[in-house]
Amino acid sequence: MNITEVSGQKAIPVIVQRVEPTDFKSITKKQFFFRWDQLKADADIYKLTLEDRPVILGLIALVDVPAEYRIEIKLISVSKENSGRLKKHEGIAGCLIAHAAKIALRKYYGLACVSLTPKTELRSHYIKKYGMTTAGQQVYAEYEVLRELIKTYDI
C-alpha cells in the first residue's frame, strides 16, 4: 500500500494496523481533529503509518453491522499536516477506505458494503473521488466499487 508525497510525487509505502492502547497518547484532538479515545469502546480503530516509521498519518474507526453485511466508517481523519491545500501526502483516506473495503469483502464477499455519514460539504467528495452512492444521510459502496477501491489504493 502506498501514499504519494505531494512535493515530489514519490510513492511512499505505508501500512494499516489496529491502534494499540499506547497509541492514544499521541493521537491528539489538535492533530486528528477528534477525541479518538472516546470511540475505542464501540469501534475498531486502525492507523495508517509509514512502513519504516511509526508516524501515524491517518485514522479510521469501523463498526461491523452483520445484519446488513456492512462495515460502517464511524470516523475517518488524516493528520493536520496531510489535509487541505498544503498537505504533505495524498492518498491517506483512500488507503484507509480501501482497508475497510478489504475487511468488508473478506467478511461478506459479494454482499459486502461500506458506508459512512459524511459532513454535508464532503458528500460530493466521497461520491466523486471514491465512487460512493448516496443513500439518505449516508453514502456507501458495494462489491464492484469496493474491489475498485482496493485495486486503486492497495497497490
Results as ranks from 00 to 15, higher is better:
Glu81Thr: 12
Ile127Cys: 12
Val6Arg: 04
Ala67His: 09
Lys87Pro: 02
Val19Ala: 07
Ile27Phe: 02
Lys80Phe: 06
Lys88Ser: 03
Ala67Gly: 10
Met1Pro: 02
Ala135Ile: 09
Leu86Lys: 14
Arg106Trp: 04
Lys88Trp: 08
Thr117Val: 15
Arg147Lys: 15
Asp52Cys: 04
Val139Asn: 10
Lys29Thr: 12
Val14Asp: 00
Gly94Phe: 11
Tyr108Phe: 11
Asn82Asp: 08
Ile60Leu: 04
Tyr69Val: 08
Glu20Ser: 09
Glu148Thr: 09
Lys25Asp: 07
Asp23Glu: 07
Leu146Gln: 13
Ile3Tyr: 09
Trp36Cys: 07
Glu68Leu: 14
Thr120Gln: 11
Val14Gly: 00
Leu105Val: 00
Ile127Pro: 13
Val6Met: 08
Ile155Thr: 08
Tyr46Trp: 10
Leu48Tyr: 07
Glu90Pro: 06
Tyr46Lys: 09
Thr120Ala: 10
Arg106Ala: 14
Glu51Gly: 07
Ala93Tyr: 08
Tyr143Ser: 05
Glu68Phe: 12
Asn82Trp: 05
Lys87Ser: 07
Gly110Asp: 10
Leu96Lys: 02
Gln138Trp: 09
Leu86Trp: 08
Lys74Pro: 04
Glu72Tyr: 15
Ser7Val: 05
Arg53Cys: 03
Gly84Leu: 01
His125Ile: 14
Ala100Val: 06
Arg70Asp: 03
Gln17Thr: 15
Tyr143His: 11
Lys119Val: 14
Ser26Tyr: 05
Leu75Val: 06
Val78Asn: 13
Ser115Ile: 04
Glu5Cys: 06
Asp52Gly: 04
Lys87Asn: 03
Leu62Arg: 10
Tyr140Glu: 14
Cys95Pro: 01
Ile60Val: 15
Ile73Trp: 11
Asp37Leu: 05
Thr49Asn: 09
Ile92Glu: 05
Lys80Tyr: 06
Ala61Thr: 02
Ile56Tyr: 09
Lys107Ser: 01
Ser7Met: 07
Lys40Leu: 03
Leu105Asn: 07
Arg35Glu: 13
Ser124Thr: 15
Asn82Phe: 03
Lys129Gly: 00
Ser124Pro: 00
Thr4Asn: 10
Glu68Trp: 10
Gln38Ser: 08
Leu111Ser: 12
Leu146Glu: 12
Ala100Asn: 05
Pro54Met: 03
Val145Phe: 15
Ile73Leu: 09
Arg53Pro: 00
Lys107Gly: 00
Asp42Pro: 04
Ile76Pro: 14
Arg106Pro: 04
Val14Thr: 02
Leu146Thr: 08
Leu59His: 13
Leu96His: 00
Lys25Gly: 03
Ala98Gly: 14
Ile97Gly: 10
Ala41Pro: 00
Gly136Lys: 14
Ala11Glu: 13
Lys129Cys: 02
Gly58Tyr: 00
Asp23Phe: 02
Ala43Cys: 12
Asp154Leu: 04
Asp37Trp: 05
Ile71Cys: 05
Thr133Glu: 15
His89Met: 13
Tyr130His: 12
Leu96Trp: 01
Ser83Gln: 15
Tyr130Lys: 03
Glu51Tyr: 10
